[in-house]
C-alpha cells in the first residue's frame, strides 16, 4: 500500500510541476503583465516602474525561478482590490466553495447510490424506468437555467427562499438544490449500469441461493464491487463542482471562489485570479489522489 502511495505521489508530482508552469505562462504569454495588472489608464512611467519593481525586465527563466520560489513559500502576491495577500483572500472564499461542494456531493452520493441500486434491482420495472428518465433529464439541464427558474418560482412567486447572499441556512437551500441535479443524474446512471452487471454475477447468485435477503445482497455484496466505476465518476463530478460552481455562485451571490474569480477578472485583480486557479487546481489534484487511493483500498488488484 505504501509503495502504491509513493509511486502515485511521484507520478502526480509531474502534473503539479506542469500545472505551475502553465499558470506562470498563462500570466506571461498574453502580452505585457504590466498592462494586465495595472489599471487601463496607467501611464508609461507607471508601467516602467511596475516592471522594475516586479523584475519583469529580467530574463524569462529568472522570472520563472522566482515565481516557483514564491509559490513554494506560499507568496502569491497582493490583492490590489483588497490590499491583502491574494492567497488569504482566495482561501477565505475557497472555504465557502468547499463547504458547498462537500455538502452537495455527500447528498448526491447517498441519494444516487440508493436510487441507482434500487433501479438496478428491478431493472426494467416502473421505478427503474422512472429513475432512468429522471436522471437523463437531470443530466441534461443547464444549472444556470435551473437557478433562474428556481429563483422565479421560490424567491419571486412564492417568496419562501432568499435570492442571494449568505447568513442563514435558507441561503444554502437553492444553491445546493441547483448544484445537486446534474451530478445526481449522471451518477445514478453509472450506479445503475454498474449494479446491473454486479447483480448478474455468479457470487450474487450464490448468495441468493444460500438464502441471503435482498437488502444485504444489494448493499453489501453487489455494491462494494459496483463501486469502482462509480468512484471515478464521483471524483469527476466533484472536480467539476469545484470549478463549475462559478455560474451558480455568481447567480446566488455566494461568496465562493467562482464568484471571487469573476469579480477579480472584471476588476483586473490578476494576482487573485492566478491564486484562485492555483488553489482550485491543487484541490482537484489532491482529490484525484484521494480517488486513486480509494480505488486501491476497494480493489486489492490495483495495488500491484
Amino acid at each position: 500500500m505504501l509503495t502504491f502511495i509513493r509511486k502515485r505521489s511521484v507520478a502526480s508530482l509531474f502534473s503539479l510541476v506542469g500545472l505551475i508552469v502553465m499558470v506562470f505562462f498563462l500570466s506571461r504569454m498574453t502580452g505585457d503583465p504590466a498592462s494586465l495588472f495595472l489599471p487601463v489608464e496607467a501611464s508609461a512611467e507607471m508601467k516602467q516602474q511596475f516592471r522594475e519593481l516586479h523584475g519583469l525586465n529580467d530574463p524569462m527563466l529568472v522570472q520563472f525561478g522566482r515565481y516557483v520560489g514564491d509559490v513554494l513559500t506560499g507568496d502569491l502576491g497582493e490583492s490590489y482590490r483588497k490590499a491583502r495577500p491574494a492567497l488569504d483572500v482566495v482561501l477565505e472564499a475557497f472555504v465557502w466553495t468547499l463547504w458547498l461542494a462537500v455538502t452537495t456531493m455527500s447528498l448526491v452520493t447517498c441519494a444516487a447510490i440508493v436510487v441507482g441500486s434500487l433501479a438496478a434491482f428491478r431493472a426494467g420495472g416502473f421505478f427503474d424506468r422512472a429513475a432512468s428518465m429522471l436522471s437523463l433529464i437531470g443530466a441534461s439541464v443547464p444549472d444556470f437555467w435551473l437557478a433562474i427558474v428556481a429563483i422565479v418560482i421560490f424567491s419571486i412567486n412564492l417568496a419562501v427562499l432568499p435570492t442571494s447572499g449568505t447568513g442563514s441556512l435558507a441561503h444554502w437551500v437553492l444553491p445546493i438544490a441547483v448544484l445537486f441535479v446534474r451530478p445526481f443524474g449522471i451518477i445514478v446512471q453509472v450506479v445503475r449500469g454498474s449494479m446491473i452487471t454486479a447483480l448478474s454475477s455468479a457470487y450474487v447468485k450464490t448468495a441468493r441461493a444460500k438464502g441471503v435477503r435482498s437488502g444485504p445482497i444489494i448493499f453489501i455484496h453487489a455494491l462494494r464491487n459496483a463501486m469502482l466505476p462509480v468512484i471515478t465518476v464521483i471524483g469527476d463530478q466533484a472536480a467539476s463542482l469545484l470549478n463549475g460552481a462559478v455560474v451558480v455562485e455568481t447567480i446566488f451571490g455566494f461568496p465562493g471562489v467562482g464568484k471571487l474569480m469573476i469579480d477579480s477578472i472584471l476588476q483586473r485583480d490578476f494576482n487573485v485570479v492566478l491564486a484562485a486557479i492555483l488553489v482550485t487546481a491543487l484541490a482537484i489534484f489532491f482529490m484525484n489522489l484521494l480517488i486513486d487511493l480509494a480505488y486501491a483500498l476497494l480493489d486489492p488488484r490495483i495495488r500491484h
Partner: peptide, 16 residues
C-alpha cells in the same frame, strides 16, 4: 499531459 489538463479547473481556465 492528460493528467495536467484533467486537474485543471477547466471552466476557470476557459474564463481567463
Amino acid at each position: 499531459l492528460a493528467d495536467v489538463i484533467m486537474s485543471f479547473p477547466s471552466l476557470l481556465i476557459a474564463v481567463i
